[in-house]
């Protein structure tokens, strides 16, 4: 009798364990799989490439979305923030301004997108989904109007190109600048979301907005900060993107939106209450980046990569939630 009871407990906790760490397990399995399937996968050169080109920019956008999703909202316009920052940054450099001015201008453009979202959501009481969807449409059209129908802006030589390089191609103690930027932002957002008073308010608004309001929290103000921060983070990605590819390609920011949402939700499987977290999001981003890279190395084309990622997201979420329910 007592033996069978112990068995059940063991089984339940094993299921609980699997549910809790399904992302980590999937992560390990995928790394092992690609290491075996492709000789180049585990080389330093490849991992470095994944980190700089696939992880950093997506992770920064995903950090912003992690804050927004924690507050119970969504920002569909992160791509617009990326693009606007990218566009203004490139335009300023092309006009001969210094890198500092370019970065400030780019972040300023993202800030405007964030403020617009904040006003629509907190002043006009439009739901975050619809408000940011509207901003997405407006932002896309704005870019096309500003670039005669979507012409990219390339800068390949001279003063402006040097300014690009100053942002993206430098390194500190052998670590590329973008990676340093990411590390700083990860730490900052982690502290903000999980250690600060503001972060606690964000969690409360996400858990039960009415309770936050009845507890004397300035919900509109905090929610505005949330959306401005998300847009600014996306703006950082926009600048890094332009600096890396030395150009501004209209509407290229949208590619980040769904991956960032996917990464954030994969990250929620780490938490019993399915709350987003910075660590979880980072894991989600790494998982997506590695799968994309690995599938590419074993010879799958771009479209099949998308299928692979879709299946992966399903598997991780289903495993985590299904096992958790069974363990309950």
């Amino acid at each position: 009798m007592s033996v069978s009871a112990n068995d059940t407990t063991a089984k339940v906790s094993l299921r609980g364990f699997l549910a809790k760490y399904s992302v980590l397990i999937a992560f390990a399995a995928i790394v092992i799989f690609f290491s075996v399937a492709s000789p180049t996968f585990l080389t330093p050169a490849n991992l470095f490439n994944v980190l700089v080109n696939n992880v950093v920019m997506l992770a920064i956008v995903a950090l912003g979305l992690t804050i927004v999703i924690s507050s119970g909202g969504i920002d569909l316009s992160v791509g617009v923030s990326v693009d606007m920052a990218s566009m203004i940054f490139v335009m300023l450099l092309a006009a001969g301004y210094s890198g500092i001015v370019g970065v400030a201008g780019g972040l300023g453009a993202a800030l405007i997108v964030g403020i617009l979202n904040a006003i629509l959501i907190t002043r006009l009481n439009i739901s975050p989904f619809l408000a940011t969807l509207g901003v997405l449409f407006i932002g896309q059209s704005t870019q096309q109007l500003a670039t005669s129908g979507g012409q990219p802006i390339y800068l390949t030589s001279g003063y402006a190109a040097d300014q690009f390089n100053a942002v993206a191609r430098t390194a500190l103690f052998g670590v590329p600048t973008p990676v340093i930027v990411l590390i700083v932002l990860v730490v900052a957002v982690h502290v903000l979301l999980h250690r600060s008073v503001f972060g606690r308010y964000v969690q409360a608004m996400g858990a039960q907005p009415g309770v936050a309001w009845y507890s004397g929290i300035r919900v509109p103000r905090e929610l505005s900060t949330v959306h401005v921060l998300c847009a600014l983070l996306a703006g950082v990605t926009g600048i890094l993107l332009s600096a890396t590819v030395k150009s501004y390609v209209p509407l290229s920011g949208n590619a980040f939106l769904l991956d960032a949402i996917g990464a954030t939700f994969i990250g929620t499987t780490l938490s019993r209450e399915r709350k987003p977290s910075v660590i979880g999001t980072l894991l989600g981003v790494l998982l997506l980046a590695i799968v994309k890279n690995g599938l590419l190395l074993v010879g799958w084309n771009f479209y099949w990569q998308q299928v692979g990622i879709g299946v992966l997201v399903f598997l991780v979420l289903a495993a985590s939630f299904g096992l958790r329910r069974a363990a309950h």
Binding site: R200, Q203, A204, A207, Q208, G210, V211, W213, Y214
Partner: peptide, 14 residues
Amino acid sequence: RAHGVALGLSVREN
């Protein structure tokens, strides 16, 4: 449930 306590937060956080 709507205004008093956030069910999804911990006792401490509430």
